[in-house]
Amino acid sequence: MSLTLEQVRRVAHLARIEISDVEASSTLGQLNEIFTLIEKMQAVDTQGIEPMAHAQEMVQRLRDDRPETTDPGQRREAFQALAPETGDGLYLVPKVIE
């Protein structure tokens, strides 16, 4: 199986990644190589083997339901110093209307 250029552009669009035509075709080549690798792996007989959802054979650790007591004002100030634009405690972004 191999990808088409159109599929590469679609995936890039879904991920909001801007790519030029040159980048699209070089990416296509790289992705197809990955597919070749996947095809090789798919040739392995996995009949009767439970698929894993994670590469590590471990289970999720759980956290107690205890809220933290950090100074929220100070933390917000520190975080918002990194943001391009804020106002009244809000992060400001170009207008989005559904």
């Binding site: 106002g87 009244d88 809000l90 992060y91 972004v93 170009p94 207008k95 989005v96 209307i97």
Partner: peptide, 19 residues
């Protein structure tokens, strides 16, 4: 939550984000 200018929270042309 996204707050739009109609809510009076954010300046014209902007949406405010409260996480």
């Amino acid at each position: 939550k996204s707050l739009h200018e109609a809510a009076g929270h954010s300046p014209r042309g902007k949406s405010g984000i409260d996480l």
